[in-house]
Amino acid sequence: MPDATGPDQIFQRALTNGEIMLPRCDDCGAYHFFPRVLCPHCHGTAISWHPASGKGRVHTTTVVRQKPERGGDYNVCVVELEEGVRMMSRVEGIAPGDIVIDMAVTAFVGGAEGQSAVLFKPAEV
């Protein structure tokens, strides 16, 4: 995608390059997620892109229970990033049942369902 111009394209192209970029409104200064052509807070249309700090906390979490032969249990959670936006994701490197609300996590770009995606691991203390 050399000529990525739409918000979704810009986000996905960054991910493919191993970067997590977040859209921020030039008018009100607030970040938002998911990417879109306007700011959902003030409805301004001047949006610029900034590298995410990668720091976040688990806002809420669940374990999807699944038989071992179908891949076993896995985590689904919503993470709130330091920038104030939330996204669905999963925390890896820890048993799904050990992930708790408010746990500090760090973002990385990994693979999910055959595509690049933002994933998290427990933050190192």
Partner: peptide, 22 residues
């Protein structure tokens, strides 16, 4: 939804489970 699908939430239970957890 496009920004949730890669994480394979089970719809709709994963959503309600996360509300209950909170």
């Amino acid at each position: 939804p496009a920004y949730e699908a890669p994480y394979n939430p089970r719809y709709p239970i994963s959503a309600y489970a996360m509300a209950a957890a909170r």
